[in-house]
Amino acid sequence: MKTKFAAFLPEIIRHLFKRPATVRYPFEKLQVPKDFRGTPVFDSAKCIGCMICVRDCPAEAIDIIRVEDVINPDAPDKPKKKFKMLLHNDRCIHCAQCVESCPTDTYIMNTDYEIAVFNRHRLKIEYK
C-alpha cells in the first residue's frame, strides 16, 4: 500500500471537537454496574453459625461471634443461637465469596464505593 506522511492528522483534528471521556466527579457520578461488589451486609436473623464464610474469606476479614441466645416464647427450653458479625473492612477485598459460600443467604453486597475514611478504626463494622 502507498505510504503517506501525517496519516494520523485528520483523526487528531477530529478529536479537537470531541467531548471529554471523563465525568466531573464528585459533582457527577457514573452508574454502578448491576453486579458491582461493594461492602458485605450481614443479616443476623438468618445466620446459623456454620463459619463457612470465616473459612472461605480470602482476606480473613470476617469474625462471627456468638452472642446471647434468643428465647423462643413457644419453646422456652430450646433457645435459638444468635451470632453477630464483625467485618474488618480494611482487610476486605470485596470478592463476595461470603455471599456465595453462605448456605442461608445471610450476606448481600451493597453498592457503596466511597468507603475511605480518615480513621481506620471506623472501618471495623459490627452487624448485630
Partner: peptide
Amino acid sequence: NIGVTEPTFI
C-alpha cells in the same frame, strides 16, 4: 490502516 500507511511508525 495507520500502521500500514504511516511510514515513520513502521
